[in-house]
Structure formats: C-alpha cells, structure tokens
Design a binder for these strands. Sequence first.
DNA 1: CACTTCCGATAGTGGGACTATCTATCATGG
DNA 2: CCATGATAGATAGTCCCACTATCGGAAGTG
Lengths: 218, 218
Amino acid sequence: MRVGELSSLSGVPTPTIKYYLREGLLPPGERTSRNQAHYDDRHLRRLRLIRALLDVGGLSVAVARDVIAALDSPDTGTHKVLGAAQQTVIRTAAYCDDDAREDATAEVLDLVRRQGWKVTADSPSVAATAEVLGALRQLGLHEFVDRLDDYARAADAIAATDLDLVRRRPDADGMAEAVILGNILGDALLVALRRLAQVHHSAELFTDDRAPQADPHG
Amino acid sequence: MRVGELSSLSGVPTPTIKYYLREGLLPPGERTSRNQAHYDDRHLRRLRLIRALLDVGGLSVAVARDVIAALDSPDTGTHKVLGAAQQTVIRTAAYCDDDAREDATAEVLDLVRRQGWKVTADSPSVAATAEVLGALRQLGLHEFVDRLDDYARAADAIAATDLDLVRRRPDADGMAEAVILGNILGDALLVALRRLAQVHHSAELFTDDRAPQADPHG
DNA sequence: CACTTCCGATAGTGGGACTATCTATCATGG
DNA sequence: CCATGATAGATAGTCCCACTATCGGAAGTG
C-alpha cells in the first residue's frame, strides 16, 4: 500500500506519518521509484504501537524511538526485550537530592534482598525505585516507606503474572511488541485498577465508622 | 518570609513562583503593602507538593491546579480527598473507539462484581479502566485481558494498604496532601517495583530454560 | 495528457511551561 | 534621608515538542 492508504487505515494523518518516518519511529517503506514507496501491514502494526506508546503510555517521541530501536535490534530475545521495557520506567525526573538518593538506593537493595529478588545493584530499576523512594522520604511520607514490603509483594504478584504471560506466548512475530505494550498499558491498567479498588475500600471504610456517604466518588 | 526566601528555600526560581501564583497553584501571600507580601511554611509545603505533582507525577499545570483546588475545598474529608485523587488517573487519552469502550465498560463492571467491589458504574475510575482495557483489546493483547482478575487482586491488595495508611493517620493538617501524594508517588513507586520484580522473574525464568545470561538488564 | 498522489525538504504552527523585562513601588542600611 | 536593592504586577518573549503546511519535482492513473 502507499502512504495514503496507510494513513486512512491507521487514522494517522499523512504528514504525521512522514514525521514519524523522519524521526525514525517508523521504518521507511520499500522504494519502488524515486517518489514511490510501498508499505505493508508491518508498518500498520508499528503505527498502532507508536500511537499506543504516545497516547496511552504517555511516552515522548524520543523515548518511543529508543524503545522501538531496542525492539528492532537483531537479538530480540525476550530477556532483551524486557530490558528495553525497563527504559519505559523513566518518568521520575530527578527530584530528591544525592544524599537521599544514596540512602534510598541502599534501602531498595535491602528490599531486594528481603524479597529474595535476583537483581543486581546497577539495574536501572533499582535507580528508578530509589528515586521515588527518595522523593517519598523527602516529602515526609514515612508511613508509605514503612509499608514498602507490602507494595513489593503486590508488585511481585503482578510481575509473576506478567512473566507467565510471556512464558505462555509462543515466540511469535508480535511477541516483542506485546511485551512492551503489556508493560506500558499494564502500568496504566494497574493505576486505574488501584483507583478502582481504592474507591471500594474507601466506601467500605467510611460507611463503617463515619457518616454514611452514599457517593463513592461520582 | 518574602518571595526571595521562599525561592531559595524551595529551589524554585522566583519568576516560576510568580507564574504558579498567577496560575492559581499557589495561594497569594499575605499582603503587607502595595508591593510586599509575606509567605509562610504552608506556601513552602504547597510548593513542594506542586513540584512533586509536576516532576514525579507528570501532571500538567492545569490538572495540578484542579487537584489542588479539590484539596483546598472547605469540606476536605478523607473520602472527598480520595475523590480528588481519582482525578489524577487521567493520562490515557481517548484511544479506542466507542464500541470498544462500551464493551470494555461492561467488562469492567463484571470485574467489579466478581471482585465484590462496591463501585458505582459512573465512577471515573471505571471509565479510566475501560479505556485501557479497550486499548489492550484493540491492540490484540487478549491474554492480558484474560488475566485481569490476577491484576485486580494485586490492585486490591495495594488499595487495602493505601487505605490502611489513611486510616492510621490522624486527621492532621497535611493529611490531604499525603493522600494525594501517596497516590501519585505511589503510582510511580509501583511501576518501578513492577519493573524490579520483572527483572527478577525474568532472570529466574530464562536461567532455567534458556541460555543462561548473566546480565539482568544492566 | 490531465489529474492525482507521492517523496523529500523546509518552514511554520500552537500549546505548554516557564523566563525576561519593565515600571512603580517599598524596605533598609549607612 | 537617600542610594541600593528587592518586590508586585503586567506583558512579552523563549524554548521545546509534536505536529502541520507548503512546495518543487517526479511518478502513477484513467
């Protein structure tokens, strides 16, 4: 197909497709002449991936490019792809200072040990977790930090399900995309589910020991 | 204190503080004359909250203003504040089409019933969850949707911990801020913990049935 | 052969989050 | 008491990002 058809099938305007081509998010089509190129359904799938990363995952174009590049690297083993997915954590700008970060890193490594997780100290996830932990500390949310293990247990259950899904999936063509998407959409899903469950627990808590409010948030 | 001191204590440049004042993120200081105003540590706390919402939570200034407005509303009961925290879910732009969304909404309500959650159908969390679910479906990640209950269970455990923290906290001055921050930083924390746990499970899985790779993602 | 579509390049747009400047005050220390 | 410097408020400018518009030349299409 040509770019016009790709545009109408995907719902992405032609100039935007050109922009993604320029930015290296979308691989170029197969050239048939000086000003003609053919695209196939791989381009369509890729385009959908891009939109999901940008719209639902909230990634920037630059980060999306990096994620996609990892996806396209020759050795796309599952483990490697999961490594690429790690990149998608980055939404915590540097917030806490260096001392706090260092303390927090030690604390995360402690947590890792307690949970029996096999993770090396220099993993980017450790840094990401430490960053958030530092922010929590610095803002005085100590109770939160005290319940870190509770949250870690939940995260462990989630990751177990994640990996179970990966394990069951045959190493098909779209597997790498599925892993990335599962992580990014999975994050959004978990946030939504958490709010949902909060509404329930909130209603439960406050209809017991406070004035019964009929309105569970709308 | 005056704005200069507020700036140096918070690390936020003076023009930016003025900008936040203009945008209604920060309440005006107590005027002492035509061109002088005094700020106190409430302003400092608020400023820290703002930066956390923007930097760590990734909220836009507009959304942050809404959240803060809810925080400042006269009846700042815990349940109400949690309602405001719901606002912070919004990062999933409209991605799936209307039909998919409708189906997904029904599916979410089913889930709510299965989990025994007390949530009304018109809660914003339901819509948010449905949006993500629709996106997952539309992208062909059906296995993911099939494990929805697993994720919901984890979310329930998380929310239970969340509410337990709220319950234990005396209704102090900073409680509302803590709830909001706990949600927003908590999201970031859980994403980070999930990645951390994934690294572990990934290592575990692939050192068993594949070529042993020494490198758990860096 | 008229007409549409395409490619590639370049330039422009609009929104968001600041950032700079300017004027008219006011504060303060010598 | 006055020079120096900070401040409030207003307005305008900047920078980045994600597009979007236009254009020239070339190729497909009925």
